[in-house]
Every structure is written in C-alpha cells, then in structure tokens.
Computed example of a mutant assay.
Amino acid sequence: MIKRKRKKILIACDSYRTLLGFRGKLMEALLKNNEVAVFTPKIHHDEVRNKLLDMGIDIYENELNGSNVSMFSDLMYMFRLFQVIKQAKPDTFFPYTLKPVIYGSFIAKICKVKHIVPMLTGLGYNFMNGNDKTPLVKIIVRAMLKFSLKLNGNRALILQNRDDFETLINQGIIDQSVNAHVVNGSGVDLSHYVFSKPDSENIVFLMISRLINAKGIREYFEAAERIKSRFPHVKFKLIGPYDPNIDSIDPVLYQKISSGQIINYLGEVSDVRPHIKESSVLVLPSYYGEGIPRCLLEGMAMGRAIITCDSVGCKETVDLTENAQTGFLVPIKNVNALTAKIQHFIQYPADTLLFGKNGRAYARKKFDVNKVNKQMLEILEA
C-alpha cells in the first residue's frame, strides 16, 4: 500500500484571535493528513501560542494591522509572506479575510504555490452601500481583490453566504467560471457551546461585537436606552474590544457605554460562554457585510433566541419557519424596529425558551462545525 504524502498547508489570517476559535477544529482535522503552519499577526497571548505549538502547528508572525490602511505595513506584510512561503514551501495556501486574500493570493502566485484557496469571511466596508467617507479606498480595494482573484484563475474560492457570491459577480470581481464554494460560516462546535435553558424571568440582552458603527453599536445603545426608561429592571450587556479604525464609534458614545448607566460594558473577554449562559437573548443589529457572524452561531448553539438585521450574513442565522422560529430580523439602522423586538421578549418571555430551543436545533442542522469542516477539507485537500 502506497502511503499518502503529507501536504503542507499554510493558513494566513489578519488576527491571531480567530485561529483557535474560528479555525481550531478545522486545523485539528487538517493535521490528521497534513502538516499545518499559520501566518499570523503577532500573538500576544501565551495560551494561544502554546495551544498552537502543542497541536504541532508551525507559527510564522508578521506586523499586519487588519483594520487600518497602511501602505508601509502592507508592503512589509507581503515581503514577510514571500520569505515564509520560500521557507515553508507549502503545497496549499489558505488565506482568509480581506487583506490576506488580496496580498496573500498575489504573493502565493508569484511563489508558484500549486493550490491557492482564498476564503472571504464577509465583504465588510468596501462593499457596503450608502454614504462613504473613503470612496477611493473602496475603488482601490475592489480593484485589488479582482486582480488577486483573477490571478488564481478558476481555482477554488470559498465564501460564507450566497449574497457575497452574487455581489462579486454583479460587480465584475469574479465571473461564472470561478470555482466558488459557499459554506455555512465557520461552523460552531456544539460540544463546546453547550445548550442551557435561558432565564425567562430575569431577561438579559447581550451583544458581542467590536465597537464599530457598522456592527450596530449605536442602535443597540439607543434601543436599550428606550427600553430602560420603561422597563428599568431589564439588563443589557455588551462584550467586545474598542476597535481603533476608520469606523470606530465616536468618543461620546463610547463614554456613555462605559459609564454603565444603560449597558453593562464588559470589554473583551477570553471566553464568551459564561456570559451567553447568563443571557436570555443575543442581539446583533449589524449591517457590516458579514460572512456569517460567529457570535450568533455561538448564541444559537447555547439555546439563545437572537435579534439581528435583515442584512448580508446575519439573515442566514434566523429561521422564520412556523414552529421553528429562532429569532427576529429587523431592518438595518432601525432603532424603532429593534426596540419593538426587544420589548417582545420582555412581554412574551416564553419565546426566549422556544426560540432558543429552535436555535439549538437549527445550529445542529445547518452550522455544526463538523459538517462545515467536512466540506472545507474536501476543498483544501483536493
């Protein structure tokens, strides 16, 4: 029997925080038949570094800032990646998120990597409609993305929702010849995010997000402010780091949030599970241009009803089928609609239990990480 040669797979990301939470199970699966390395911005938490090393993953670090525009930083990133690919000699290059996809696909092509599999985990700001302070940046990013994906020919491209595929087609970024695969987000580990019965008597609303405008931070705060004036006993919580980029919330709003008068702001936490367990409903009024938001999958897996926007990526998480409903969809930037749905759960608390139970079933049916990773393995190991 001929033993299969172990391939080398190099994974590139724009934040080390996503490696274990979003790709941990995928890397475990890849390691069964392959050697795996990661190209990541500098890791500042020893537990993340040690876990990766314990798994047998090679680590290559860089100075990329995924949120900000910096030509010098981006050029240094490309030069460092060129060095890493020449050293590691990967058979497969798997970049995910925008900058690693754009720059990484280009460098990997120059270095003649045989199998390049970019994944776009949402299209973000650069494909959002409406007022835009940086139209030139949008134009440049779209042109660069088109160029990098065209270099890859009709090889595999992974997306996390069908809307992103249609957007890329309609804007001429890709054409129908592209071998595109749509997967159900990053998936969620149902053995890690365990179901628990929500407290329907003491209602707690929780939002998990970076503090940027497009995630709907202001809408969440204003809805909470309205609800607290009528139902002062209801609690609102917010988890997530302040993100210093072009779309950061303004200092006045940040100060209001940090004061704790309306929302209990907990900052960034290492493990969201205890906080989801203490919550009744998960809220994410995002219009960011998501892939499929991870926090909503985590909430559903743990049996939490959700309120989110009828926007790209977010709407994928809500099943509105009769007797199987998992939550509510509201129009983007609509504080009135968001407030109304929050109030619904206060007035009909039994729906937190019903929708939460349905959410767990929907997560098992559609977003189980093992199902998602099976599809990912078929693409990456092709």
Rank of each mutant, 00 (worst) to 15 (best):
L149H: 03
P232D: 10
I332P: 02
R364K: 15
S67P: 01
H115P: 00
E278H: 13
Q171R: 12
V113Y: 02
N358W: 06
E225Y: 11
M302F: 10
I246M: 05
S280P: 09
S258R: 12
F236H: 12
A382Y: 10
G260F: 14
S286Y: 01
E61R: 08
G289M: 04
P100K: 08
L120A: 03
Y348P: 02
P244R: 01
V283Q: 08
N34P: 00
L380F: 07
F205Y: 15
V101I: 11
H44A: 07
M302E: 07
Y125W: 13
Y287Q: 05
S258C: 08
M76F: 06
E278L: 13
G187T: 04
F22D: 04
S105Q: 02
G356Y: 03
F22I: 06
S177V: 14
K138E: 02
N161K: 12
F231V: 05
G216W: 00
L64T: 02
I102P: 01
I85D: 01
V113G: 06
Q347C: 14
H344S: 13
G313A: 07
M207T: 13
S148F: 03
F93H: 07
I59K: 02
R304K: 13
D271V: 08
Y265S: 05
C314M: 03
Y125P: 00
N370W: 00
L136A: 06
P241G: 13
E225L: 09
G124V: 10
P198N: 11
E290C: 06
R364Q: 13
A224F: 08
N65G: 06
K109P: 03
D58Y: 09
K357N: 12
I306K: 05
A340S: 15
M128D: 04
I262A: 05
S286I: 00
I9E: 01
I332M: 10
A301E: 09
R210G: 07
I110W: 08
P349Y: 05
D58N: 11
A363L: 09
G216Y: 03
S311Q: 09
R142G: 14
G172E: 10
S148Q: 08
P90E: 13
G356L: 10
I2P: 14
C314F: 05
I208V: 14
D14S: 13
R210F: 07
I239S: 09
H44N: 11
L81G: 01
L145N: 05
G122Q: 06
Y348H: 15
D163K: 08
M78A: 01
Y287G: 00
D175A: 07
P198S: 10
K146D: 10
P241V: 13
M207G: 02
I276Y: 02
K51A: 15
K235G: 01
V204P: 09
G327C: 01
Y242T: 10
I43T: 05
L81N: 00
V137G: 12
Q261A: 11
D271Q: 03
N126T: 15
M119W: 04
A223S: 11
K89Y: 08
E316I: 13
G24Y: 07
A350T: 12
V269D: 00
N154I: 11
L123M: 10
